[in-house]
Amino acid sequence: MKLKKNIATSESGFIFNPATGDSFSANPLAADILARAKDGLDPVAIKADILERYDVAPGQLEKDWDDLLAQLREFNLLD
């Protein structure tokens, strides 16, 4: 998962794509993931941490992770 470089994320979960002018709102977990991805954290590490902290099965997380990627692609936020 490689976010476009110029994507702006805010602490309150807002995402702004300066190339298209689109704004997005992320729910807390998505905002957390994006912030850490921006910091260059590896997806494996992010997922491991989520499994550690949240009440979710690994299979479910994998599925939702794929769905998040699909959304990021749909919204043109990935490199």
Binding site: A30, Y54, D55
Partner: peptide, 14 residues
């Protein structure tokens, strides 16, 4: 005690 989980999701603001 783990945190309750809800899938990560984005919403385009219109």
């Amino acid at each position: 005690m783990k945190l309750p989980y809800e899938r990560p999701t984005l919403r385009k603001l219109t």
